[in-house]
Structures are given as structure tokens and as C-alpha cells.
Design a binder for these strands. Structure first.
Lengths: 133, 133
DNA sequence: CTCAGTGCAAACGATTTGCAGGGCC
DNA sequence: GGCCCTGCAAATCGTTTGCACTGAG
């Protein structure tokens, strides 16, 4: 696990949030994380969960996903990978494929931005929702 | 402009929203669109703007962007293209590059989803914000 | 004339924040 | 002992919705 720095304290709340997040592959929302964590720390507040998710994401210890939908989602796996989102049920899963070569380079050559990163967001229908429709 | 269908009426509110959205390249938020439209229809309500943006996006006449950040943004240009978002000021601009070949295919081969679409979201620092930092 | 659409205001859901107390270093 | 962090509750922000009225067809 990456290091917390400075005068940042490793509280039990922080520890449990990180552990629970690394335990699942489901990209939970803040509220879902709150529920998971509350089983081990019943007195934790929702505000604390939000504060720590934001803070840990800032340190790169977890990743905040900007995948659309109503709520933000969080990922304990910080390795580079893409995501797919089921348009029916909102479920988000990982897509591990090679990053297209030269993608950021060709983007850079057509705009004046300093490019920092990119993310590919697929949308589709998951196997669970497919039988319907 | 694409057709409204069924018993959907072409009200002045709808007309003005579409016109204003096609006029700009800035991917405005609902509130910004509200401001733009209000200059021509001072009595329009914010609820009407939201209702129509949602409805027009459903018809494919405009596009709702899921680009992260706090608010949803809308794009009058429905042709396929990507976006870049400035992490400093939140500005969103278009990226017109070729869609990587086989991207959706390789995603399909590593998950059980029926893939419908994909979007590439770049993040970076725009020329306006670059001098700083 | 009818019914989809509107303005308005209240409701809502996700997230943030102020504050007083608690506990790590 | 100082200061970071917490729990709690209230506040905020974006968005949605109920309702009575309006205007397009």
C-alpha cells in the first residue's frame, strides 16, 4: 500500500476504508462504501467517508471514477485500466486492454492542451441484463 | 435539424434551447444554457430547461456529456468526437481524432457485455491555465 | 377544445461543511 | 498539549417533480 505523507494520520477509519475498497471489484459509490465500513466501525459518519475518499484519491491511494451516472464511484485498483458501464443496471466493471498507441499524442497535436491522462469509458449491456430488453 | 416525432410539440422554448446550443462550442451546463436562453425568453423556468435538455438528448438531437465534474454538460454537435477537460478550470473542448481501430472489439473479447459505444475522455491543462502552476 | 408543455416552488439526493469534542503523536 | 480527525447535523448544489395554468395544433 502506498504511503500516507506529512502529518497525515493513519486512523482506523482510513485503514478500514482502504481495506474494504481493496477487497471488492465492484467500484462502489460513497454510500456503498459507507455501508461496508459501518459493519466494522458502526459509529463512523458519512461525512468522514466522503472526506477520506476525497483525500485518499488525492494521494493516489485509491481512484475516483468519473464514469457518469448519478453518483461518483471509487476503485481500490489504481493500475491503469478502462471501464465499462451497463446502461441498464449501472454496474461498472474493469476492462483490461492495451492502451491504444499514440492516442494521447494525436490528441495533443490537435489541441493546445498539455495532456495529462486519458480514460476510455465503454457503455453496454451486461450479461445479467442482456436476456431482457 | 432532426425531426421531433409523435405528438411532441415544437415550442419556442425548445427551439431557442436548440438554437443556442448549436451556436456555441463550449459544452455548457444546464445552468449556463438557462442563462443563454433567458436572454431571449426571460420567463422560461429552469425546470423547463432541464426537462427539454433531457428530452432532446433522448431523441438524439443534442448530446448529454458524461465528462465528470460536478454538473452535466450538453453538446449541440452530435457527430462522434472525443473531449478534453481542463483540470484547472473545468473547460471542455472537442478532440477530433480517428477512433482507434478495434477498440470496441478488443473490449468485447475480454468481457461478457454487449458493447454499445465508447468515449475517450482526455484530461489536461488548457493554454489559458498553463502559464500558472 | 385538448393535452403536451410551461412556470413556479417545493422536494430530493448526493455531497460538503461548521463545529465541538476526541484521540493520536 | 497541539492539531488532525471525527461524528453529527445543518447547509449547499444540481436536478427533479407536483400542480395549476397556458398555448400549440
Amino acid at each position: 500500500m502506498k504511503e500516507l505523507d506529512d502529518n497525515m494520520r493513519l486512523t482506523s477509519q482510513r485503514q478500514v476504508i482502504i481495506e474494504e475498497l481493496e477487497k471488492v471489484k465492484s467500484h462502489p459509490t460513497a454510500n456503498e462504501i459507507y455501508d461496508m465500513v459501518r459493519k466494522r466501525l458502526p459509529r463512523i459518519g458519512l461525512g468522514t467517508v466522503y472526506r477520506n475518499l476525497e483525500l485518499l484519491a488525492g494521494k493516489g491511494i485509491i481512484k475516483k471514477l468519473e464514469v457518469g451516472g448519478e453518483q461518483k464511484r471509487f476503485d481500490g485498483d489504481t493500475s491503469p485500466h478502462y471501464h465499462i458501464r451497463c446502461v441498464e443496471c449501472g454496474r461498472v466493471e474493469d476492462i483490461f486492454i492495451e492502451r491504444p498507441k499514440g492516442l494521447e499524442k494525436s490528441a495533443a497535436s490537435c489541441c493546445s492542451y498539455k495532456i495529462l491522462d486519458h480514460h476510455v469509458q465503454f457503455s453496454g449491456i451486461c450479461s445479467h441484463c442482456l436476456p431482457d430488453a
